[in-house]
Design a protein around this nucleic acid. Structure first.
Lengths: 154, 154
DNA sequence: CTAATTGTAACATCCATAGTTACAAATAGT
DNA sequence: ACTATTTGTAACTATGGATGTTACAATTAG
């Protein structure tokens, strides 16, 4: 999984859940904030549930809530939950083994890029959704209740 | 530009050029090492030419060569030349502005993720294609001449 | 003049992601 | 039990970006 907006989208959803604290929100309300389809939300949150970042409940008054305290959910946790294989993807075709560069470059790059990827993930570990949620509260003119009571149109 | 294999592919090509030092190689020979189509190579190298990483020459005995010393070309230079917008892409739809999270999350994330992206690019600056080319020479059983005299089949 | 080679446009193909529809499973309220 | 709500998930379609291909004009060495 790579190159998609899923890390950002997942972060958005979890930040909404952090902002409303322990209230459950339905996939429909979350989709409203993301401006997308409820099934997309359920699919994405399925991964986050498997990684114990959220809990879900079916039936009337069901929905999703954080499984942990917001200050215990870092962007790295989300990154990991989404199983981003690697930042750096290889060409669909295998390089030519008859070429000394083609025969070795992928193994060499994989090793060489590890510290770069680690530098990134180490930074992601320092950012929690609690940080993001607090920034939202500082900035936002709109009261938080607007999320809980959102008019979903029809 | 994002989420593609282009950084890896471009690095591969430039490493080939580093390994054969100042010799010019045609897009066909480079495509042979990459196991792809010559036009793909020409297109990609067009960006690297615009960024002054390679020079090209048309006509008989034309082709591509490095524009600078291999130890003066870092992976960050390539990253920059390819104009990777950002590591982190946003959802195709704008989030809902009526939601306090949707209205602010993108601006907040853009700022918050900058140090993470910088951590990555700082690491990329420390890796040059000269490093990679030396690793190839250490590992490779196949002699380098094989690239210059590659049998391109037909 | 010819052959080689880049530069680039135009189009086709492919693949991953996102969107949609549909429906079974679970559960709260009555 | 019945009904309404909501998740879980399969199956399919739509979209967009990247790659592959064909074609040909422009450049240049000999």
């Amino acid at each position: 999984m790579n190159g998609s907006s899923r890390l950002v989208v997942a972060t958005h959803v979890l930040t909404v859940l952090a902002v409303v604290s322990d209230q459950r929100l339905s996939s429909e309300k979350l989709a409203w904030s993301l401006n997308t389809n409820p099934v997309v939300v359920r699919r994405l949150l399925g991964h986050l549930r498997d990684a114990d970042l959220v809990i879900s409940k079916r039936g009337p008054n069901g929905g999703f809530a954080l499984a942990r305290s917001p200050d215990d959910v870092s962007l790295y946790d989300i990154y990991e939950a989404l199983e981003v294989d690697s930042l750096f993807t290889f060409h669909p075709n295998e390089p030519n083994e008859a070429c000394p560069v083609g025969d070795n470059i992928q193994a060499i790059l994989t090793e060489t890029l590890k510290p770069a990827e680690k530098a990134l993930t180490d930074e992601l570990k320092t950012i929690t959704i609690d940080d993001l949620s607090q920034q939202i509260l500082e900035r936002s003119a709109t009261p938080i209740e607007s999320v809980e009571s959102a008019d979903l149109g029809d």
